[in-house]
Amino acid sequence: MKDLVLHAQNISKTVASPEGSLTILADVTLSVRAGETLAIVGASGAGKSTLLALLAGLDSPTTGRVSIAGVELSMLSEDGRAAVRGRHVGFVFQSFHLIPSLTAIENVMLPLELANRRDARAAAAQALAQVGLTPRVGHYPKQLSGGEQQRVAIARAFVTHPAVLFADEPTGNLDTTTGQRICDLLFELNRSTGSTLVLVTHDRALAARCGRLFELDAGHAVAPAAHLSG
């Protein structure tokens, strides 16, 4: 079990609602090994994004434990969890989440600067080159197409060489062809950097490209995770 990069033990998430408390996620246990690719699938409202948020340390479970790269998150403060995210985690979102006032290269530099890396600009330029956006480094998000914006977001996610990369519906806002290209890029970078990829999607074709599927239904794990490959 030494090469486990992500482990969730009996995690649940309950929130208060006008009708009483509501369980969004119930007793989920999940382990992901280094270099693995995992797709979290399920219908809308099944709890996919909640699970992703808990696994990435963006939110705390009501019960249960989560650890990333061997660090137990429930023991940490918000700042502690932020430090773990900064060191080990990368994100790609459905709506790209680029900062509109920053150029493409500045957006990619942001996580490096937060980690106080002195070579931020050079590393960001290299990351943008990897996603084929060298001619666009000085462009602002609104000057880029949706596909280009997502490529900037992917460059930003990989630039810190994270142990785990979380992707939330990465093709959700893109047309099929562009989405296909973005997926190719995502998987290629995942292979070449040796990182672990955890993605949330309702796109079965995209899920099928992952090594493992984890299906959720109304907050519950549907079946033991099936190993599709390696």
Partner: peptide, 16 residues
């Protein structure tokens, strides 16, 4: 608020 959420996502501490 969105920028701050993103920065915290990327590891920025509250103090920063």
């Amino acid at each position: 608020i969105e920028t701050v959420a993103l920065m915290k996502c990327m590891g920025a501490a509250q103090g920063l």
